[in-house]
C-alpha cells in the first residue's frame, strides 16, 4: 500500500472500481440499519435483500480493485481497513436514513442512477467490470421498482405521507448532483470504453425521476434551491465526507479493528 489513509490510487480502473464499490458498500450499511426497524416485517426483509444485493456488488468491485492494485489487498482489507479519507463514495449514500420516506427518496435517486450506470457498464471494454455490471442490472432494476412503488404510494397517499415524502425528497435532492460529476480520470476511462459517461446518463435519470415524482403528486425540488439544512454536496470522490460518514465507519469497522482476524 503506497498511500496515506489506505486509498487506492492506481491504476485508474481500480480507482473507478472502488468508487462504485464504495457507493454500494456504504448504502448497504445504511439500508442494513433498517433491519428490525422497518414499518413491517415484510419491509425489513425487503430492505435487507436490497442491502445484500449492494453488498454483493461491493464485494466484487473491491475484490477486483484489490487485484488490479496488486498489493495483495482483499475485499475485506478495502472494506474495513481504510480510513475515512480513502473512501470515495458520494455523500448521498452516507447520509443518515432519516424516516422511511427519506430512505425511499434516496433509494429512488440512487437506484435510478445505478441502473443506468450498470446498463452502460455492462458494455464496458473491461470484461470484469462488464460482467459485474451485467449481473447487477437485474438486482438494481428491482431496487428502483421498490423505491418507485413506495414513493408513489407515500406521495399520492395521505396528507401526512405526502408531506413526509416531499420532505424526504427535498432533503435528498441536493446530494444527487454529485452522482453525475466526473473528473479527468473518469473522462480518460470513458474514452477507453471502460467507464460510463456520467453526463450522458444524467438526462435519462432526470426523466425517470421526474416521471415518478409527477406520478406521486410531488413537487420536484429545483437544483438551485438547496434546502435550509443542507447545501449541495461534493468531494466524496476525493475522500472528503460529511459528519455522518465517521459514525458510519465506526460501526462498520469496529469489529474488524477490535478483533483483527476474527471469523465465525
Amino acid at each position: 500500500m503506497n498511500s496515506s489513509f489506505g486509498a487506492v490510487v492506481e491504476p485508474p480502473t481500480a480507482v473507478y472500481a472502488v468508487r462504485l464499490g464504495d457507493d454500494a458498500l456504504i448504502l448497504a450499511q445504511r439500508l442494513g440499519e433498517w433491519i428490525s426497524r422497518a414499518p413491517q416485517l415484510e419491509e425489513d426483509v425487503a430492505l435487507a435483500n436490497l442491502a445484500l444485493d449492494l453488498l454483493g456488488q461491493a464485494r466484487m468491485l473491491l475484490t477486483y480493485a484489490g487485484e488490479l492494485e496488486g498489493f495483495g489487498r482483499t475485499e475485506d482489507d478495502l472494506a474495513y481497513l481504510r480510513d475515512e479519507r480513502a473512501y470515495t463514495n458520494v455523500h448521498l449514500v452516507e447520509q443518515q436514513n432519516g424516516d422511511f420516506a427519506e430512505t425511499m427518496a434516496r433509494l429512488l435517486a440512487f437506484s435510478t442512477y445505478q441502473l443506468l450506470l450498470y446498463e452502460g457498464l455492462a458494455r464496458s471494454t473491461d470484461e470484469t467490470l462488464a460482467a459485474i455490471a451485467a449481473k447487477a442490472v437485474k438486482e438494481v432494476a428491482y431496487h428502483r421498482d421498490h423505491a418507485t412503488q413506495w414513493v408513489v404510494r407515500l406521495g399520492d397517499g395521505t396528507p401526512e405521507s405526502h408531506a413526509r415524502m416531499q420532505a424526504g425528497l427535498d432533503r435528498v435532492w441536493p446530494f444527487t448532483a454529485e452522482l453525475f460529476e466526473t473528473d479527468p480520470l473518469e473522462k480518460s476511462l470513458t474514452e477507453q470504453g471502460i467507464a460510463v459517461d456520467r453526463t450522458v446518463i444524467r438526462q435519462a435519470w432526470q426523466e425517470y425521476v421526474s416521471g415518478v415524482v409527477a406520478e406521486a403528486t410531488l413537487d420536484q425540488p429545483t437544483e438551485s434551491k438547496p434546502t435550509e439544512t443542507r447545501s449541495a454536496a461534493r468531494g466524496g470522490r476525493q475522500g472528503i465526507h460529511s459528519e455522518a460518514m465517521g459514525y458510519l465507519l465506526a460501526e462498520l469497522q469496529h469489529l474488524v479493528r477490535s478483533h483483527p482476524g476474527a471469523t465465525w
Binding site: R37, P39, Q40, Q96, N97, G98, D99, F100, A101, E102, R164
Partner: peptide, 17 residues
C-alpha cells in the same frame, strides 16, 4: 437508532391487510 430516526420513525401500521 439516531435521535432523528427516533423522532421521525414511521409508527407500525397494524392494519395492512
Amino acid at each position: 437508532m439516531s435521535l432523528v430516526n427516533a423522532v421521525n420513525a414511521v409508527p407500525p401500521e397494524p392494519d395492512w391487510p
